[in-house]
Simulated assay, not measured.
Amino acid sequence: MRFRLTDDQRALRDGVRGLLARRFDVRAALDRPGHLDRTLWRELGAAGFFALRLPEERGGTGLGLPETVLAFEEAGRALLPGPLIATHLAAATVPGAADGSAVVAHVDGRLVEWLAEADVVHGEAAGAVPLRSVDPLTPLHEVPEAAVLEGVAHEVSLLTAAEQLGSAARTCELAAEHARTREQFGRPIGAFQAVQHLCAGMLVRVEVARAAVYAAAVTGDPADIAAARLLADEAAVRGARDCLQVHGGMGFTWEAEVHLHLKRAWVRTHRTGDVTESMELLARNLLTGVD
């Protein structure tokens, strides 16, 4: 199996990264928590973000799951807020979802992200009550009874893994940058073995998760997706924690984005395909055919 990106895939990845770098500032978003930037949402739609897998004759770009994973990895890296996955999955069925003129949310388990900002909600959200979210950029509601997403659960899990991968890669970069520039006792903290071990562990988890997520995007196999989700969740959560260790107390300040990656990673772990569901799926897969 080949994991080398094509020129077109690299161009897509770089294009999404460039768009988000120009148009999205996570610190500015913190000034209006719970508010979805509709102008940016429409720009994402115009750029084809939500219609990546729609056929060209239906206004999409006609790309596949691997390219979609690359785009969502960049969204995770930038901490882009909003019900991205739900709107992407609704592009073929909900008018306005593909071009970003409509915001779609779905009831996923007991938690619903961005319910108040959604134009369309998939699933039963009656009786939903707002929760105080640990992530200031992901408003949450809780519904009385857990719901199961029919037909798209594996895609939700894979795209969540892609977002987690992007976040893990970003915290790895932040840790390495800080270790090179922050000095203690007259030398960069990256010269100390304990910090080196933290950074090395982060990089290993990122690259292992990357291989798993990219492979699952190619095969689309539920077991591969479950494995990718487990590895990406671990890379995102442990990576953010280790990055906080490298930064010390300043990692918890609002001027740093490290703690925001940890909080978003925590919220993502509660989506469909969480650690329990993924482990159970892998266990069933391993036991298939065993007497």
Rank of each mutant, 00 (worst) to 15 (best):
T6L: 12
D7H: 07
D7M: 08
D8Q: 13
L12Q: 09
D14Q: 14
D14T: 09
G15P: 00
G15T: 04
R32W: 02
R32I: 02
R32A: 11
D37E: 08
G48Q: 00
F50W: 10
R53K: 10
R53T: 11
R53F: 06
E57K: 09
R58M: 11
L65W: 05
P66G: 04
E67F: 00
E67S: 04
F72L: 13
G76S: 12
T87M: 08
H88C: 11
T93M: 07
P95Q: 12
G96W: 04
A98Q: 05
D99W: 06
D99T: 08
S101V: 01
H106R: 03
G109R: 03
L111Y: 03
L115I: 05
A116E: 12
E117V: 02
D119E: 10
V121G: 00
H122P: 02
H122Q: 14
A126W: 00
A128C: 07
A128I: 04
S133M: 07
P139N: 09
L140K: 03
H141L: 01
E142K: 10
V143F: 04
E145F: 08
A147P: 03
G151M: 12
E155F: 02
T160Y: 00
A161P: 10
E163Q: 14
S167F: 02
L174S: 09
A179W: 15
A179I: 14
T181E: 14
T181R: 15
G186W: 12
A191N: 11
F192S: 09
Q193A: 14
V195M: 13
R210F: 10
V213M: 11
T219M: 05
A223W: 10
I225M: 08
A232K: 08
A236R: 09
R241T: 14
D242N: 15
L244M: 06
M250I: 15
G251C: 12
F252R: 14
E257F: 04
H261G: 03
L262I: 12
R264Q: 15
W266A: 04
G273C: 03
V275C: 02
V275I: 02
M279G: 11
E280G: 02
R284P: 01
L286T: 08
G289W: 05
